[in-house]
Design a protein around this nucleic acid. Sequence first.
DNA 1: GCCTTTTCTGACCGATCGGTCAGGCTCTGA
DNA 2: TCAGAGCCTGACCGATCGGTCAGAAAAGGC
Lengths: 195, 195
Amino acid sequence: MARAVSETHGEILAAAARQFAVTGYRGTSLQDIAREVGVSKASVLYHFANKEALLAELMAPAIAMLQSLDDKLAGLTGAAAQEVAATGFVDLAVRFRREIAVLRGEFPELLCQPAFTHIQEISDRLRNALAGYSDRPSAQIAALVLLAGISEACAEFVDVPEDDLRPALLTLVRRAVEPVDAPQPQTPTTEDKES
Amino acid sequence: MARAVSETHGEILAAAARQFAVTGYRGTSLQDIAREVGVSKASVLYHFANKEALLAELMAPAIAMLQSLDDKLAGLTGAAAQEVAATGFVDLAVRFRREIAVLRGEFPELLCQPAFTHIQEISDRLRNALAGYSDRPSAQIAALVLLAGISEACAEFVDVPEDDLRPALLTLVRRAVEPVDAPQPQTPTTEDKES
DNA sequence: GCCTTTTCTGACCGATCGGTCAGGCTCTGA
DNA sequence: TCAGAGCCTGACCGATCGGTCAGAAAAGGC
């Protein structure tokens, strides 16, 4: 009953992608994946050295695109960096919606795995760029809210067409991001008006 | 070596809160919690019927505040609902940062548990309110991005003082939310300018 | 035909999980 | 002094986890 070479490999990868996105990495067992594909758990472990290697191969394309975005940001500053970070991350999140969903929530632990070395640093640089490299707390907070929110929205709206999702996210992030030039509305006396 | 009545109860609850927030509900074992408190796992299960009951008691205050916000939203529409949803959720998220962190990521599975009945519906109503009850996809997407992003930011910035976090989030959400009156900038020919 | 390589499997392993249980400890009121 | 309530424990349970291994089944070149 042996199949064509590496056909099963791809099927396992696809099943893992689906299940990781729904149940999470920890919440999905190799048995679950094997069952969906219709093979034994031992077969899954024949095609992939271990569960971690399965995850690594699954996330590789998304990580590569993130790395490339990081490279593009290297030489930019201010508003230009902000714009590249915004469009770049929206594109990435929309395209790799399922991969984003996998990482969602299990971030702190998954980041410890070899497959995700430097992801945290890249994310920090991305957030800084989106904040226009301002050290204002409000700019940093806005950038984090947007990055995390976009991730979550993409994971949630997996069935919304890319062409609907992308423009809406871009419009939002451009409206919401703290302008790099304007030194925040100077209302020092009214900033604690809500109590 | 018996301690004062219910002293251990509180210590277990506090330890669970800390560990759930970092390692997640699934990723934290009763043994881990027991070890931090300095008691046996059996003792944890003496004070709490099971792991789920521990989580339920932990989340109760946050859920109560969410329920109260939902009640407040019941009679409101349009911009008023938007404002109440924004300030209400920011307050909730800032106050219950650790509880929010617990739910982060394990949402889909945790919601199945009895402790979280109706949370999904309340969240949907909250998102609708923040979208100004508009069925425009862009308004719904913006609302989801903001709710999820605020949650994540609060979980991330656990050590930032409330008084710094709250105004920044409020300013952001008011700037980012899609206005309920303005029928979105009419640029039908340029909305696909990015390609 | 046969022999090698690739693919796949059932049986098994140690570890860990949430949870149970009988019994020991301490404190307190009668 | 003693019985009982509250608190806590070690030992144990079945289930499930990721992972190993010897060997069967199929594929393919000769």
